[in-house]
């Protein structure tokens, strides 16, 4: 049995405003788990927000009448931070899942590389019409 020390979650329409809600949940999580090192809080928050923003910007509904929903579940376990960032009712992701290498003038395309630099593992799964990115970071403490 996994020992979960603190957890927070969000589910709502995949829209820009949802990002602020996810951020507020993360702030609440760190208040609940102040023992998590500041560096881990900072890096994991950035990775979760990048992943959630990626869904809001790029997820495409599988059916026209059913909008994509964003789901985020974040847990603090001993020495491990984990987040499941999901796009519900979405088509499978289109295009490369590999980070690009934008030039200095480019205004986008850095998100995936940033996520990979911030976390220990990134795993993707698709199940029952839901795309989920699972992020883990081994805690420094």
């Amino acid at each position: 049995m996994t020992d979960v020390l603190a957890q927070r979650s969000f589910r709502g329409l995949s829209a820009a405003e949802a990002i602020e809600s996810v951020h507020n949940e993360l702030d609440g999580l760190w208040e609940d788990a102040p023992f998590v090192q500041a560096m881990d809080q900072m890096t994991f928050t950035t990775a979760v927000i990048e992943s959630a923003s990626n869904i809001v910007q790029h997820a495409v509904p599988a059916k026209a009448q059913k909008p994509v929903e964003l789901g985020v579940e974040i847990s603090v376990q001993p020495s491990l931070l984990q987040a499941r960032v999901s796009a519900f009712y979405a088509k499978p992701p289109f295009g490369p899942l590999k980070p690009g290498t934008p030039d200095d003038d480019s205004e986008s395309g850095r998100g995936l590389a940033l996520i990979e630099a911030l976390v220990t593992t990134v795993t993707f799964e698709r199940q029952n019409g839901t795309n989920t990115w699972i992020l883990t970071r081994t805690s420094q403490s």
């Binding site: 480019s106 205004e107 986008s108 850095r110 998100g111 940033l114």
Partner: peptide, 10 residues
């Protein structure tokens, strides 16, 4: 985040 960074570059 990277959106904010993109805005600064713009």
């Amino acid at each position: 985040d990277s959106s904010g960074l993109g805005a600064l570059i713009g």
